[in-house]
């Protein structure tokens, strides 16, 4: 077990290691058996929200010792060393850490009578919330205990780990549900609105438009720039990133950019233009779930711009679009990063990869590399 990385000596984890922490409380959640990471994150956050005292109120907490071994995790009172909780390690679903908070998720099966036939078995999760300045270290030690126990299990059962590489990471990407921030965004009525713009006959609206990019869930044009002092800007109702659904009742959804441009140009002689828009931020976030670097990301990048996308790949499922420039990877700006470095970051990125993008043409317009063609 010497190979298993982590803060502890793997041999020590066989006997058990103790960490001091403050116990804040426990709560229960109902969960499916192997939820995707995004669901686990929401569960952990929910547990913390339920337990943490509101800002300004004092947080009740008890000094405890966390006993971590490859067999079990126990919560002992610091003074009497009495076991408050004792969970076999295989019932620990996952450990989450956020800042100085640790959330331990242990499973309990729901009684059979609560299960409807044909439905997924649901589990009751007992969520214990702790505070410690060493939260990350403790979480890493528990993660290490998971790995040591798992290696031991594979050895005992003569399972070749190389055959399990993909399974042990949790979900296979093929099973992953589609993540698309757009879908949630577009389905909210408050993001959709009708904008009425008054203008002089012969005057242009003063908007520049670009394609939303292949892979976008709503194939329609995006406002890339607003002409200073133009009717669109003066209305104060439009911003860069907004999707144009229709103009004066003519749908733009699914039409080529050039067709959309000529439809908007034809409005020149109108004095009132009604735009149906979905308000969107100029930057979109894609979340790619990649359990292992063995999985292809499923897109090609040239000079920071996504130039092709593999149909059905994890990138497409995560909301990556062709023609977009990568702005950030996992919170780190890459706008001034050389191509080779971006490739290196992407090649090594695993687990949940958060990528912020914007249409490359919008980026060029915003950075003054290209002059907008106002319509």
């Amino acid at each position: 077990f010497k190979e298993v990385p982590g803060p502890c000596d793997p041999e020590d984890l066989l006997d058990g290691v103790i960490f001091g922490a403050k116990y804040l409380g426990s709560t229960q959640l109902v969960s499916e058996r192997n939820p995707p990471t995004s669901v686990r994150m929401a569960q952990a956050q929910e547990a913390v929200d339920r337990i943490k005292a509101p800002e300004g109120e004092s947080q009740p907490m008890t000094e405890v010792d966390l006993f971590v071994s490859t067999q079990r995790i126990k919560v002992l009172t610091a003074d009497t060393q009495e076991a408050m909780m004792d969970h076999p390690l295989q019932t620990i679903s996952y450990i989450a850490d956020i800042g100085s908070i640790i959330v331990l998720m242990a499973r309990r099966k729901l009684p059979r009578r609560t299960e409807a036939s044909g439905e997924k078995r649901l589990y009751k999760m007992i969520c214990h919330v702790f505070h410690s300045a060493d939260a990350q270290l403790i979480a890493q030690a528990i993660g290490q205990a998971f790995s040591v126990a798992y290696q031991h299990f594979l050895q005992v059962n003569s399972i070749d780990p190389s055959q399990l590489r993909l399974r042990q990471q949790g979900h296979s990407p093929e099973d992953e549900e589609l993540y698309n921030g757009d879908l949630a965004h577009f389905s909210k009525q408050e993001n959709c609105k009708e904008v009425c713009i008054q203008k002089q006959k012969g005057e242009i609206l003063g908007i520049a438009i670009v394609e939303s990019g292949w892979g976008s869930i709503l194939p329609t044009v995006v406002i890339a720039n607003l002409m200073h002092g133009g009717p669109a800007e003066k209305s104060g109702e439009l911003s860069i990133g907004d999707r144009l659904m229709s103009v004066n009742g003519t749908s733009l959804v699914g039409l080529p950019l050039s067709t959309c441009q000529s439809i908007i140009r034809d409005l020149k002689h109108q004095t009132e233009v009604t735009l149906s828009i979905v308000h969107c931020p100029p930057v979109t976030t894609a979340i790619i779930r990649r359990p292992d670097s063995k999985y292809q990301l499923g897109f090609c990048v040239e000079n920071g711009i996504i130039c092709s996308l593999m149909r059905g790949g994890i990138a497409e499922k995560g909301g990556i679009r062709v023609g977009h420039r990568i702005i950030e990877i996992n919170g780190q700006s890459v706008v001034a990063t050389p191509h080779e470095k971006i490739i290196q970051i992407l090649t090594q990125a695993v687990s949940e990869v958060h990528i912020k993008t914007m249409p490359a043409s919008t980026y060029r317009l915003l950075t003054g590399q290209e002059q907008p063609i106002f319509l």
Binding site: R33, N34, T37, R40, M41, A44, Q45, H87, P88, L89, Q90, T91, I92, S93, Y94, I95, A96, D97, I98, G99, A106, R107, R108, K109, Y123, Q136, A139, Q140, I142, G143, F146, S147, A149, Y150, F153, R167, Q168, Q169, G170
Partner: peptide
């Protein structure tokens, strides 16, 4: 600060009787 999740790989192998009742 970032929320980090470490999933127990043994979760997949847990037998129903092992879940705490």
């Amino acid at each position: 600060s970032a929320l980090t999740i470490t999933v127990n790989p043994m979760e997949k192998y847990e037998q129903p009787h092992q879940a705490e009742e």
